[in-house]
Design a protein around this nucleic acid. Structure first.
Length: 571
RNA sequence: CGGAACGUAGCGCAGUCUGGUAGCGCACUUGUCUGGGGGACAAGUGGUCGGAGGUUCAAAUCCUCUCGUUCCGACCA
């Protein structure tokens, strides 16, 4: 590729819209351009990087026995009604009517389409054990797209779906995918961790996320400092606390005029937040539910949602709280409350705690479960903290930010039952197919790789993801000898299968160096004065800036060796 | 959708409070010089000031509405 013929519009200044480093550098490097909110064009270099990821994904999926196919992006609403998701999915699903007024949507994921295909085409247990995948543009009408390729509305995803005869086979496939994913992210040169995850709206019984560790990540991970435990914070199990066996004290009502916040109440009553219990009201699919957690804890909404078995929970506002309970916020408590009450396990282990009295300007102390009120249910409902022990081994946990680049689910038979995807087993019985689904955010991987690999001068691509492996700078466009050498090296490298970008623009050396750094291409070859004077070609690595001086004849072989070494190292 | 900010040349911004001439840097065009870390000089091109309506002799500037973008929250690959 010749720079002069390509479209690589680098920017000296950072566009104001870009906040995170990958977004800034992708724009500055001329890899992407925004069309509208959350929707980007991939320019030649951006596309080249994406193709690299796709290729790795393809190779590993195929190696794991999966088959590639391609499904439609436009999907009929009726298919989505079969699983109930047309109603459930929410405004993230972009819906529209075609010219015949048929309801349609743009595929944000493909469980319905693939299950429809499977139920039509697969009859016998002999045809089961299939894993089908595609790499395709998805559309999710995100409420708030942000961070460039990290959370677009339109993005490239690899999605795979497996169909097995029973749980044991499905489990094997899940394991295989777990291994394939580990290989994929390793080959991409990413620093990542697989973590236990919530299965979200896609549904299913069990799942892992693959997280790239980066400060700009939107998820928080709980990672054990000692054993192999790692989980998304929203899923991370809090260890069951030891029950307090103090004697029960007498219930006491205390006047707390104007003291609504935990801090104010504690100060007024001369207690600490861990002796107080908050009563928070959530709307669970519209129904008010009160949740008790210790004063210094936060409710984990995902845990609450799963515990209640509802689609959505949100914190009620002051008015909704008053409407549901008749008590102003700040004075709510479990004693005599009228709405459904669920209790965090930590609170269930407490004795003689302080709560709101369900009456303005009053709190109660020495409250106890069982004696003063009954809980509808007790569960792990709070957010884990960095001070919690590992739920597996009890050693300290570390909390880190991560970018979700892959997610695998055991789906079970939810979709197959809803859509009547049955096969006939060897015993002649009709049985539901056991499904799994496995996603990778292809375009997001490129962003994640940059978040992990950059410096003040620009991107630093790991060799396996680099859009091209070498940038060849001709620093003497008007010098016949230099240009001749640069062109011949360009030809020679390409002949040896090396991907090269030849910077043949009539620009000053400094300008080309800056662009080369910004673009993040792993190897840089310079043909300039050093060559015309001493016959020396310079080879520099982007990551550590190390320079080797070589004779032109030795260059190609050296480059091939470096590339091979880096690619093998990542495998 | 809730909270906040911002829309002025391709990009980054000033000008808006206090109404009157649209400006700076980069980029772009032409020329000369220059040529190893985003060069210098000279001459240029490019604007319905997001859009619509209003107030006024006069609106980028004041008022109303609207569209868009970004940031914080809920969603997710």
């Amino acid at each position: 590729m010749r720079y002069s013929q390509s479209l690589i519009p680098t920017l000296k200044e950072t566009p104001a819209e870009a906040e995170v480093v990958s977004h800034r550098l992708l724009l500055r490097g001329g890899y992407i351009r925004k069309l509208t909110a959350g929707i980007y064009s991939y320019l030649p270099l951006g596309l080249a990087a994406i193709r690299k990821v796709e290729q790795i994904v393809r190779e590993e999926m195929n190696r794991a026995g999966a088959q590639e196919l391609l499904m439609p992006m436009v999907q009929p609403a009726d298919l989505w009604r079969e699983t109930g998701r047309y109603e459930k999915y929410g405004p993230e699903l972009l819906r529209f009517h075609d010219r015949h007024d048929r309801e349609s949507c743009l595929g944000p994921t493909h469980e319905e389409v693939i299950t429809d295909l499977a139920r039509r085409e697969i009859r016998s247990y002999r045809d089961m054990g299939k894993n089908l995948y595609q790499i395709q543009t998805k559309f999710r009408d995100e409420i708030r797209p942000r961070f460039g390729l990290m959370r677009g509305r339109e993005f490239i995803m690899k999605d795979a779906y497996s169909f097995d005869v029973d749980d044991a086979q499905s489990e094997k496939c899940y394991q295989k995918m777990f291994e394939a994913y580990t290989r994929i992210f390793k080959r991409c040169g990413l620093d990542f961790r697989p973590v236990e995850a919530d299965s979200g709206t896609i549904g299913g019984s069990f799942s892992h996320e693959f997280m790239v560790l980066a400060d700009t990540g939107e998820d928080t991970l709980a990672i054990c400092s000692s054993c192999d435990y790692a989980a998304n914070m929203e899923k991370a199990a809090v260890k069951l606390p030891v029950a307090d066996d103090s004697a029960l004290l007498d219930l006491e009502k205390v006047e707390t005029p104007g003291k609504r916040k935990v801090a104010a109440v504690c100060e007024f009553m001369d207690i600490v937040p861990r002796e107080l219990v908050k009563t928070l009201v959530f709307l669970a699919d519209g129904q008010a539910v009160a949740v008790l957690v210790r004063g210094d804890r936060e409710v984990e909404e995902v845990k609450l949602k799963n515990h209640l078995g509802v689609v959505e929970v949100e914190m009620a506002d002051d008015k909704q709280v008053y409407d549901a309970t008749g008590v102003p916020t700040g004075y709510l408590g479990p004693v005599g409350i009228t709405v459904k009450l669920v209790v965090d396990q930590e609170v269930a282990a407490m004795k003689n705690f302080t709560v709101g009295a369900n009456e303005k300007n009053y709190h109660m102390k020495n409250v106890n479960i069982g004696r003063d009120f009954e809980a509808v249910s007790v569960a792990d409902l709070r957010q884990i903290t960095k001070d919690d022990p590992c739920p597996q081994c009890g050693e300290p946990l570390i909390l880190r930010e991560g970018i979700e680049v892959g997610h695998i689910f055991k789906l079970g038979t939810g979709y197959s039952k809803a859509m009547k995807a049955f096969y006939q087993d060897s015993d002649g019985q009709e049985k539901p197919m056991v499904m799994g689904c496995y996603g990778i955010g292809v375009s997001r991987i490129v962003a994640a790789a940059i978040e992990q690999n950059h410096d003040e001068n620009g991107m630093i691509f790991p060799m396996p993801l680099a859009p091209v492996q070498v940038i060849l700078l001709n620093l003497g466009i008007k010098d016949e000898q230099i240009t001749k050498m640069a062109d011949s090296l360009y030809e020679e490298l390409m002949a040896r299968g090396v991907e090269v970008l030849l910077d043949d623009r009539d620009e000053r050396p400094g300008f080309k160096f800056k662009d080369a750094d910004l673009l993040g291409i792993p190897l840089r070859v310079t043909v300039g004065k050093r060559f015309s004077k001493d016959g020396i070609i310079e080879l520099r690595t982007r990551r550590d800036g190390a320079i080797e001086e070589l004779q032109p004849e030795a260059l190609a072989a050296r480059i091939v060796a470096l590339i091979d070494a880096e690619i093998t190292a990542a495998q």
